[in-house]
Simulated scan of single mutants.
Amino acid sequence: MNQRNDAADPSPRHAQADETNIRALVEAFYRRVDDDPLLGPIFSRELTGRWDDHLAKMTTFWSSLVLGSKQYRGNVQEAHRPLGDIEPQHFARWLSLFLDTVESRYEPAAAVLFMEPALRIAQSLQLSKFGWDYRIPDAQVDLLAALKRLRTGDAAPDLPARGNGEPFPATFVGRGKSED
């Protein structure tokens, strides 16, 4: 994986997604993942020698979701099933990095096209991984609801508050019912 860091990418934010900027988003996001102390070792272990294939697959995946290209052929649940050592904090970190990367690269109307499915997919994977009694973190549920309102224009988006320079809430770590 290319180790270049795009944290301070001066590029203007895109008003619309296209194949080129989706590819750039995927590459920038996975550079951040690869550099991340929590996620990097897991992705490195799983993708050593296969990074290029994974980046191409993720570009196709996001293009299928956001642009409707319908080129992705795969099963998201099955692809993640073999990852036995994934915990709630991994989902929190993945979401935080992904949402922050999307926000830095797209205007709000385009960003929501990535953010809403990312949160829905994360929720599905979390419930599949941790069981139906797993409590999806309130911050994650609230953000998904706010993004839906933003997409549909039902009401002012009332996005969760963030401090200056603070990434998306890392309080996406939920608890099972037994921990309440």
Rank of each mutant, 00 (worst) to 15 (best):
T152D: 13
T152A: 01
R93W: 01
T171N: 15
N164Y: 09
Q140C: 08
E87V: 08
D158Q: 10
R149H: 13
R73M: 06
G131N: 12
V141E: 08
W62A: 06
L55G: 07
I121Y: 04
G131V: 00
K129G: 08
F91W: 10
W132C: 00
V141C: 00
Q89L: 07
S63E: 14
D138V: 13
L144T: 07
L144G: 02
P160R: 12
G153C: 04
S69Y: 05
L143W: 04
Q71W: 02
D100F: 01
Y106N: 02
K148H: 13
A79Y: 09
T171I: 01
L159I: 00
G163D: 14
D158T: 07
A79P: 04
K57T: 14
P88E: 10
V66I: 11
S69W: 01
K129R: 15
N164L: 09
V141I: 10
A170F: 00
N164E: 13
A161N: 07
Y72W: 10
R93V: 00
L143Y: 05
R151C: 01
P137E: 13
D158G: 03
F114R: 12
G131M: 04
Q77P: 01
M115Y: 03
L67N: 13
R93E: 14
R162H: 13
A92Q: 02
Q89T: 00
L97Q: 12
H90E: 03
E116T: 10
D100V: 00
D154N: 02
V102H: 04
I136R: 07
K129D: 09
A111K: 02
E166V: 02
G131L: 03
Q123P: 00
F61C: 02
Q77Y: 10
P82D: 09
N164G: 04
A155Y: 03
A155G: 06
T59A: 15
T101E: 15
M58D: 03
P108V: 04
I121F: 01
R73Y: 04
E107H: 08
S63A: 14
V76H: 03
V76I: 13
L119E: 02
L99S: 08
Y134V: 05
L147F: 02
H80N: 08
G163E: 14
L99N: 03
E166W: 00
G68F: 04
L83E: 06
M58R: 15
L127R: 15
E107R: 14
V102T: 12
P88M: 06
A146Q: 07
S104T: 02
T59L: 11
L159C: 03
A122K: 10
P157K: 02
F130C: 07
